[in-house]
Design a protein around this nucleic acid. Sequence first.
DNA 1: TATGAATGAGGATTCATTCAT
DNA 2: CATGAATGAATCCTCATTCAT
Lengths: 214, 214, 214, 214
Amino acid sequence: MATTAPVKPSPRTDKRRAILDAAGPVFGESGYERASVDAIAAAAGVSKPTIYSYFDGKEGLFRETMADIARQLNEASYRIVTSLDLRPEHWRAGLHELAMALTACQRQGCAAALSRLVLAESNRDPEVFDEVRRAGMEPIREALAGRLAMLGNAGHLNVPDPAVAAQHFIVLTQAHLPELTAGGTRDGDPAQIDAAVRQGVDAFLRAYAGPTAS
Amino acid sequence: MATTAPVKPSPRTDKRRAILDAAGPVFGESGYERASVDAIAAAAGVSKPTIYSYFDGKEGLFRETMADIARQLNEASYRIVTSLDLRPEHWRAGLHELAMALTACQRQGCAAALSRLVLAESNRDPEVFDEVRRAGMEPIREALAGRLAMLGNAGHLNVPDPAVAAQHFIVLTQAHLPELTAGGTRDGDPAQIDAAVRQGVDAFLRAYAGPTAS
Amino acid sequence: MATTAPVKPSPRTDKRRAILDAAGPVFGESGYERASVDAIAAAAGVSKPTIYSYFDGKEGLFRETMADIARQLNEASYRIVTSLDLRPEHWRAGLHELAMALTACQRQGCAAALSRLVLAESNRDPEVFDEVRRAGMEPIREALAGRLAMLGNAGHLNVPDPAVAAQHFIVLTQAHLPELTAGGTRDGDPAQIDAAVRQGVDAFLRAYAGPTAS
Amino acid sequence: MATTAPVKPSPRTDKRRAILDAAGPVFGESGYERASVDAIAAAAGVSKPTIYSYFDGKEGLFRETMADIARQLNEASYRIVTSLDLRPEHWRAGLHELAMALTACQRQGCAAALSRLVLAESNRDPEVFDEVRRAGMEPIREALAGRLAMLGNAGHLNVPDPAVAAQHFIVLTQAHLPELTAGGTRDGDPAQIDAAVRQGVDAFLRAYAGPTAS
DNA sequence: TATGAATGAGGATTCATTCAT
DNA sequence: CATGAATGAATCCTCATTCAT
């Protein structure tokens, strides 16, 4: 557990980061096929062969770019989920805040385009779909499931299957997101999004905070 | 002289249908960019210029193909929703059946690829996204909202906002669908899907069949 | 020599005329290659195969269209040249009028585009170039040469070679035409054109009305 | 280290020259529309994308090719005009030589096709017409006008408007050129061309070497 | 190592031309 | 006879990818 984390920035790492940071928006704007390696190279301020020396072709660049965005999204989401306030008087408000924060997290930066891009290429390249799901989505759901289980153990919620409950929480709180943001293409009205998220949390609470729960 | 077809099949209509029927799977398999007009022409058994005489370029063909699939999906789904059995002893089982049928409907033919394709191109061509949503998704949700409202009026459900309830029903029953079908690219295990749908309906009922509901 | 001339308009002749009248402007606007048979058919109000039944492909249509325009231009020009007033007190003014009229004639209708089109295709299809020159340009020059010879016989001009003199008259009076009309593409300023024509006639008179001429 | 080339030949400049040199004949032979970029690439010994990297599409290649030919024609013509011998005993013969040389210049290489090509595309692309005229034709006429004015100042010619006289000189000496060379498509009989040029100069001299001129 | 230069492959689109009605 | 429908061929252009510097 020594040097896995923040390696000191070598020039090699810097260029790699610059390319990844440039590729995200370009892929997000144009999609995989329409995004040209030229455009990404120009946006990153490097030349095309440099990209080929860092990544395994366009496909490899795409996969690593998506994985990178997923990882960032995952980190942010993870912090949100694990900081849920479990105390009796706070967990309800905490769930609302969690839902709001998760939604905001999904909508910022290239994260909004992530699912769109990955889904679009899921047929041609199922691996990237699985990997993003495995590295980006499932850990969050697992963490959320754990927190919901804690709320169940505390008698606040009735969660026979925490994984299912977590998924239900996510889809309910994001039920109207595609519609309100045009599939992640536009920003959408914050007020409407807030309201929709709140309705989702309410529905979740009605479904999972049984009459015996406090 | 029978009345099988509401419109008399002209050769013009036939070719058009053949092209649309061929374009759906090709687009679904390859996506918009990778799908070549050549491949669609070959699959339809016509020549490339014929396609250009029937449709307004590749983009026009894509839009009309998506709209066509959405229309078919809409019709089938509409029949399912409107045939919900509202009688006191049947409506619970009816909702389960409805969810199952809707899910099956979403997964058959090119419908599975519809949302993936439309979402993938939503940034480049927002119109197709809106049109498919307007013509294919919203009517179903409206119809479902109407049915849920009837169940509310009958005292079975507690639905202050039927449109929201309908959306919640849909996302809950399809919460695990992307995961189980790899984003619509694979068929998925029917048993797992059935179970997931059932869990979704159960959660919906817990959320919307209040204690006062019978 | 009975029925060579204006045949009574049969429907066949009418359609032929309609096609020729439609083809002229389309060719003139787009050039031979860019002009599509579709556009000509649409402008003529007939269908494409009809054109192929009246003419020998696009090439044949082009040749006959050019020949037709040349014939019209020739007729009008011929009338102008042969109506030159040869009387002692009038011939100088007559030459000016002739030059003006010829220039106006070259600039009206599709005639302005004729030489441009024919010259453009002269390499690919030398026949059309020769034919237009033979049927449209040479007769006029011959007629003009004849008139100049008459003026020579009358002692007004000094024309050892009337054919050369006629050509010199033409090029002098039209010396600035391509420049002023952007190669026949635009109309040009009438005042400038008039002045240029007058300067050309004056130069011609200085060159061919020797000191012995009256 | 010799000074053969004013600019040091970089590989970039070489390829550019090769493409321009190849494009001239191909455009001249086939015209703008029929000339395929493939053919030009093959003639230049480069691949198609290379052309697109050096020029802005087919249109850009055409414009630059025409401008290049015009520049070459202009340079050669300019040298001819400025080397006119103005001495009293030589200027008449000098004008004949100048006319001969200018005519020869117009007929060699791709210059013969230049006006035909540019005129053919003048309607679709007026800019190329104007540019060639501005960069290729007008400077020559201006230089010639200057020389004629000098002859006027020396009392040899009577040139109230040198620009007009220059244009008259050009059109008179080239009056029969289109006819004799089939619009620049064929070489034509040198003897006939010589005779026609001489007749043109003679006519010019009659028109502009007034009785007072020596 | 990083890059400017070059290419082979492939795609959308248009058009002149010909059948079946 | 005139037409709607269909097609084979050919064109422009773009892109991912690889060398020579």
